[in-house]
């Protein structure tokens, strides 16, 4: 029952995404043109990376609200480096260093210092936001070289490079999490921490690894952001952590840990991004954005929670019945013997 349900959650997310596209397309057919769908997918790449990284952390039972700040900081670092003429490997390396370093810091704080994940990542978020301002001196990072800004236009066999990269990365992650032994440790840690410890899973390393992956993915998202937008403003990445968490939840990743997949997170990211652009096509005034996003998140989470409780109750009733059935059987045997 459980494996098929795991598939079902991602399927739900995919179905919702498709319905969303069709629904909006029926109101405004311009939405369904190939060009527009391609544009929407391109815009979702950043959120896909954020949500994929966030999935690792949520799977292990923690949470990471610093992804937006990491995105902003790594974008600022990458933009500054590329503007000042450093080679591409240095630019990418710099961004990844920011992301990985923050992830390491978060992981160490959560595991060794026993600081709750919300608190730790909230603090890291504040520190990085301020650090980003200080690093850029409060100024926008502009005048990026053309090759970098045009990187987001490169097409491979007609598919945008970044979209392809995102899909490949998510595919590899999904493969790792579901088939590799170490990959399955992530969900194990989130599902039952004490059980994982007893079974011999290297819990501390897995939790730190989850945060590092999240940081690295946020850095990748920062690189994508810089290339697509073309400059890095002061509030780059502000609020994206909320969208990332929402994307994960919509994609079927349970915040209690242990359940979910990066594929679902990918669909969730596409959905979240589509809603933003959809509102434009539906001619809904922009100030409805936050309300609709918040309402959608709450509805999905509510549905997920209610479903979870229903399943739990059903499983518990089954166990109870099984126990009583066994007891009744035993009693019947004794009576028959007597």
């Amino acid at each position: 029952m459980l494996p098929s349900f795991r598939m079902k959650r991602e399927f739900n997310a995919l179905l919702f995404a498709v319905l969303l596209f069709v629904g909006i397309g029926s109101v405004n057919p311009v939405f369904l043109t190939v060009r527009n769908i391609a544009l929407t997918l391109q815009g979702s790449v950043m959120y896909i990376f954020l949500a994929a990284g966030m999935t690792f952390v949520i799977l292990t039972g923690d949470i990471d609200v610093s992804v937006g700040a990491v995105l902003g900081m790594s974008a600022a670092v990458a933009a500054t480096l590329v503007r000042d003429g450093y080679p591409l490997w240095a630019v990418v390396g710099g961004a990844l260093l920011v992301g990985g370093g923050t992830g390491l810091l978060n992981g160490v704080g959560v595991t060794f210092l026993r600081i709750p994940a919300i608190v730790m990542t909230l603090g890291t978020m504040g520190i990085l936001r301020g650090a980003m301002f200080i690093y850029t001196d409060g100024k926008w990072v502009e005048n990026l070289p053309d090759f970098f800004k045009q990187a987001c236009q490169i097409c491979v066999y007609g598919i945008n490079l970044f979209v392809l990269a995102a899909v490949v990365v998510v595919f590899l992650m999904q493969l790792y999490l579901t088939t590799a032994r170490r990959g399955k440790y992530f969900a194990a840690v989130g599902d039952n921490l004490d059980g994982a410890v007893l079974v011999g899973v290297p819990v501390v390393r897995i939790r730190i690894a989850a945060f590092v992956v999240s940081g690295l993915c946020s850095a990748l998202a920062g690189l994508v952001y810089t290339s697509q937008i073309g400059f890095v403003g002061n509030v780059a990445g502000n609020g994206t952590e909320m969208t990332a968490i929402a994307a994960c939840v919509i994609g079927g990743v349970s915040l209690a840990g242990g359940t979910g997949s990066v594929a679902g997170a990918l669909f969730g990211a596409v959905i979240m991004n589509t809603i933003n652009s959809a509102l434009v096509f539906l001619k809904v005034p922009a100030y409805w954005n936050n309300t609709i996003s918040g309402l959608l998140l709450l509805t999905m989470v509510l549905a997920d929670s209610l479903l979870h409780r229903y399943l739990e109750e059903k499983a518990r009733r089954k166990r109870l019945n099984a126990r009583f059935a066994r007891a009744a059987e035993r009693r019947a045997c004794d009576d028959a013997r007597a």
Partner: peptide, 15 residues
């Protein structure tokens, strides 16, 4: 509804 506090207040914040 038994939804986690972090998510509810996150969604609430946006809403």
């Amino acid at each position: 509804a038994g939804v986690q506090a972090m998510v509810v207040t996150l969604g609430g914040m946006m809403f």
